[in-house]
Write a protein that binds this DNA or RNA. Structure first.
Lengths: 124, 124
DNA sequence: CCGTATCCCATATGATACTG
DNA sequence: CAGTATCATATGGGATACGG
């Protein structure tokens, strides 16, 4: 037997109240995950590199986001025993499968920002 | 001149701290927007229909989500002066452009839920 | 039926200071 | 460099009651 048969995968449906996919969507839709995954899409990155790329993220939130991604198997963390310490984060195979959907979202936001601003202004 | 040249569209970039695209991503990534847009993908829906489809959403959050989508020009609200009142929500043209990216996200969540659960279980 | 108003709590996030 | 710990705050979100 397996350890993944908590529920029947065939019935997983985020439209259903307690389906775990809903919590998963919550997580990948949070304020920083989209950007952190995007930053890591370019290849392995150090903590400070990601922090610079994701402008404005606090140390706390970056750590927290990376830990969550690690726990979900989307990112690996590799620490090199050097001084000063060096730590690299990298997308896993599963993490890579998120790149395209998230990039599509980013592109949507950039493409349609003018239309959204216009709609907001129209009811100013 | 136009009213949409708040910033140069060519430099819109969610990786930059105060870029409005980042707030837009926040919004469409919130707990309910993905599901509400998905519900409306089937065509115009009444408030109560959406509420049933998006299992567990509170009246308050559904109203709030729909108002935000309306303000951003992604959804239209049509009230029919009947008794009892009937209100229909429908995706705008721009709203429709969100369907595919969001559906891709949903599908990612459903597809990779087992892998994520396995990763979580693997670290007890 | 379709909301609005209010209260309340949990959590997400930020700022700051400290450590191996 | 790469965190951890702590405090403070803003926001998200639910429950409930009421209104057109």
């Amino acid at each position: 037997m397996t350890t993944t048969d908590t529920l029947d995968p065939l019935v997983w449906d985020p439209y259903v109240r307690d389906c775990p996919t809903r919590a998963l969507l919550d997580r990948i839709g949070d304020r920083w995950t989209v950007l952190v995954i995007g930053a890591l899409a370019d290849g392995p990155q150090r903590f400070s590199q990601i922090a610079r790329r994701v402008d404005g993220v606090s140390q706390k939130m970056l750590t927290q986001t990376l830990r969550a991604l690690e726990a979900d198997g989307l990112v690996t963390r590799t620490q090199y025993p050097e001084i000063p310490p060096r730590v690299e984060y990298e997308l896993t195979a599963v993490g890579h499968t998120l790149r395209d959907p998230l990039r599509a979202l980013e592109e949507w936001a950039v493409t349609h920002m003018p239309a959204v601003l216009a709609a907001r202004a129209a009811r100013g």
